[in-house]
Simulated scan of single mutants.
Amino acid sequence: MRALIIRHDHPSHAGYVGERLVERGYELHEVTVVPEERFYSPDVRVTFPDPADFDVVVPLGAPWSVYDTATIGSWIGDELALLRAAFRADIPILGICFGAQALSAALGGRVERAPMYEIGQHSIETDDPGLIPAGPWYQWHFDRFTVPPGGREIARSPIGPQAYVVGRSLGVQFHPEVTPDVAGAWLDHGGDVQAAELDLDLAELRLVPDGARERAAGLVDAFLARAVSHRR
């Protein structure tokens, strides 16, 4: 079995989510959209693979906004097309943060600036703790999504939806994949400046919630089980 991991920037990787997919027998095929040398000028050209070659697609987070076509317009349209094609082909998608926002946009939802940021460890309200436990989950975002047509919101926070299911796919606003090295890499690539401007504790932001690996594994297992049960 093959999983397509869409890494939008070099500091991000699939972390605990990728680890669990490997434990479940998946071979990870990673595509990095914006290479390290273009991190500050991300208007690159990308040739995405055919999603039909994979059993699951996992688009990860990104430091940019789905709607910022002035910055990432060279590739975001192609990524949305990939996600639409995967969804129509009944290939399960696990969208994480930017990836969940992109999946929503691809399927007719909306992505917009949130009324406030969520950064660090946060618990959420969930209707389906077997799939999405209350957390705490690591978060780092300034945008929010609407649930796409045909989808169902299953978790939320005061600023908006935190998770939705649509078909065999799942979008989550938080970061189940985050390991301490991912959190540290985000801080080292601009997150420290953002955090300082918001008067947030940098040392605390390098910490990942206790039990994060186990919660990520449980989420992956439940997602895979749900995807199989909802096969068309």
Score class of each variant (00 low, 15 high):
Gly211His: 02
Val44Lys: 11
Arg20Asn: 04
Ala222His: 04
Leu224His: 03
Ala105Tyr: 09
Ala155Leu: 13
Glu37Lys: 11
Val46Ser: 00
Arg232Val: 13
Val208Asn: 07
Pro35Glu: 08
Gly99Thr: 04
Phe142Glu: 12
Glu37Leu: 04
Pro180Val: 01
Pro180Thr: 05
Pro11Ala: 08
Trp140Gln: 01
Thr126Asn: 11
Ile132Met: 15
Gly73Asp: 06
Pro158Arg: 12
Gly95Asp: 07
Gly218Asn: 13
Ser12Ile: 14
Val31Glu: 11
Glu153Lys: 06
Arg152Cys: 11
Glu37Tyr: 12
Arg110Trp: 06
Met1Ser: 07
Ser123Val: 11
His175Gln: 08
Phe145Leu: 03
Pro148Thr: 05
Pro115Ala: 03
Arg215Asn: 13
Leu103Asn: 01
Arg45Ile: 09
Gly130Thr: 02
Gly120Asp: 10
Leu80Asn: 01
Phe98Glu: 00
Pro161Ser: 09
Gly73Arg: 02
His189Glu: 13
Leu28Tyr: 12
Gln194Phe: 14
Pro176Asp: 06
His122Asp: 10
Arg20Val: 05
Gly167Phe: 13
Val220His: 08
Val34His: 02
Arg24Leu: 14
Leu170Cys: 03
Phe98Tyr: 15
Arg213Pro: 12
Ser169Trp: 04
Leu83Asn: 08
Thr32Leu: 14
Tyr138Cys: 14
Glu214Ile: 10
Tyr26Leu: 03
Arg152Phe: 07
Gly167Thr: 10
Asp127Thr: 13
Met116Trp: 08
Phe174Leu: 09
Ala185Tyr: 03
Ala163Phe: 12
Leu170Arg: 09
Asp43Ser: 15
His122Gly: 07
Pro35Leu: 14
Asp50Arg: 05
Leu200Lys: 01
Leu4Phe: 01
Gly191Lys: 05
Ala114Val: 04
Glu27His: 03
Trp75Tyr: 15
His8Arg: 07
Asp192Ile: 02
Arg113Asp: 12
Gly95Leu: 10
Ala105Cys: 13
Pro59Trp: 00
Pro35Phe: 10
Leu207Ser: 06
Gln139Asn: 10
Leu21Trp: 12
Val165Ala: 09
Pro129Thr: 11
Thr32Ala: 13
Val208Met: 02
Ala100Met: 10
Leu103Phe: 04
Phe39Glu: 11
Asp181Ala: 04
Phe223Ile: 09
Pro136Ile: 07
Ser123Asp: 14
Val22Glu: 14
Arg226Gly: 11
Phe142Gln: 10
Arg7Glu: 13
Leu83Phe: 14
Pro158Cys: 05
Ser104Gly: 09
Ile93Tyr: 13
Ile72Pro: 01
Val66Ala: 01
Asp90Asn: 15
Ala102Leu: 04
Glu19Arg: 11
Val165Arg: 08
Ile159Arg: 14
Leu82Glu: 03
Tyr40Arg: 13
Ala183Lys: 08
Pro35Ser: 10
